[in-house]
Simulated scan of single mutants.
Amino acid sequence: MSFIPHLTKSVHHAGYPAIDPTNPKLSASGKTVIISGGAGGIGYAIAQGFAIAGAARIIIIARRQEALDESVASLNAESAAAGRATEVWTYLLDIRDSAAAEDVFKSIRARLNQGKLDGEEPIDADVLVTSAAELLQGKMSIEFSAEQYRGSFDTNVIGNLNLVRAFLAPEIPAIPFTGLDGIAKDTSSVPVPKRKKTILDVSSSSSYLVIPGQGPYASSKLAFTRIMQALQAEVDLIEGQPIRIHYFNPGTIYTPGVAKLMDEEAKNAIKGFIFDDYSLPRGFAVWLASPEAEFLKGKYVMSNWDVDELVALKEQYAADPTFGTITLKQ
């Protein structure tokens, strides 16, 4: 979109060599990747990307069994055709249910550690992608009902937070914290986490651009991004800083969700507008989870931005903690 400010001169609308999941530098070999909303749309494209990058297993979470069955069949067929050995697991889950989310992650950990001997280092998932979202638009901010706002926040904030909490459950006791009252959390008896973990939140440009008609969606996406900003600062207190969090705009893609809000006629009426291809978030998410993008933790980025140009800005990111963040401009 022309009104979106970009940090790089080159702006992409589809995948390109630097984010190609087949690039050995972006290998996800041995990784376990959990993706919510991974049964379709952007989430499924990201699942494809990690499978192409050689992930050991892709775990897809969704609310509809039919969608899960279709996605696992498609991913398995693609992997078989390409000679890949990626396992695909699926879990039926309404992410708004915190207890159910905890149970799913307990089940995942139990399955990952099946057959391990006592005393061996437990296996856990490496990457969490929060892609499930509720998209509402088309009314004035005050025309949306309280129930519609609650629905957006229940999924886009509470639901995604349930996943992050369950994903980081083993690390939470070891995260140092001192409250405003000066009382420090006692972590002396807890081992320092060593496993590197990455959270990729599929965010939106609506989280920082003022776009009329997106009150519930924009505010809920911004709220979750803000929570993740705070969480990154908190987990950075762990020795070695093994956890990194990224939030990124996947591009403007004509997903099934968008199609419900904008039919083909309306889509074609937007003269000169270029919708992005699924290959863009498919590759960008894999790149973002790679060591090359570690300097972008806690920063907002867009899939459209050229990654080589982003790497060239590495020193600027390091010198200015507010660069690439949603913050007050002075």
Rank of each mutant, 00 (worst) to 15 (best):
V164Q: 06
S188Q: 07
D186K: 03
D154R: 05
L117C: 10
R165L: 11
R195D: 02
P176A: 15
F153L: 13
F167S: 05
K139S: 10
R150M: 14
G119D: 01
P173W: 04
V157T: 04
F153D: 00
Q114Y: 02
V190Q: 13
L161K: 08
L117I: 08
P122I: 02
K194P: 00
P193G: 06
V164A: 08
I123S: 08
Q148S: 09
K185C: 01
V164I: 15
I183Y: 05
D154K: 01
P176I: 09
A133F: 08
F144M: 07
M140D: 10
P170F: 00
I175D: 14
F167Q: 00
E147Q: 14
V164D: 04
S131W: 05
A125Y: 05
L128M: 11
D124T: 09
Q148F: 06
A132F: 06
A184R: 06
I175K: 13
S189H: 15
V190A: 13
R165S: 14
L135Q: 14
A174Y: 09
S145V: 08
L117E: 13
Q137E: 13
A146N: 13
V127K: 00
K194S: 11
I172M: 07
N113F: 02
T178F: 08
A169C: 01
T198V: 15
D118V: 12
N160A: 09
T155F: 04
F177W: 12
A169F: 11
R195Y: 05
D154A: 07
I158R: 11
D186T: 01
F177G: 04
K185D: 10
G151L: 14
V127L: 00
K116T: 15
V129R: 06
A132S: 04
L135M: 08
K196T: 09
R195C: 03
K185P: 03
S145R: 10
E171S: 07
N162L: 10
V190T: 14
I158A: 03
K185G: 04
S145M: 02
F177L: 12
T198L: 05
A125F: 01
Y149H: 08
T187A: 00
V127Q: 00
R150C: 08
S131V: 02
L117W: 12
N160G: 08
L135Y: 14
T178K: 12
L117P: 05
K197W: 00
S189Q: 15
V127D: 01
E120T: 05
K194E: 00
A174I: 05
I123N: 06
G182R: 14
N160L: 13
A125R: 03
V129W: 03
D186S: 10
T187H: 10
G115D: 07
D124N: 07
G151I: 10
E171L: 13
T155M: 06
S131F: 13
D118M: 14
T130F: 04
K197H: 00
I142F: 15
K116L: 09
N160S: 13
P122L: 05
N113S: 03
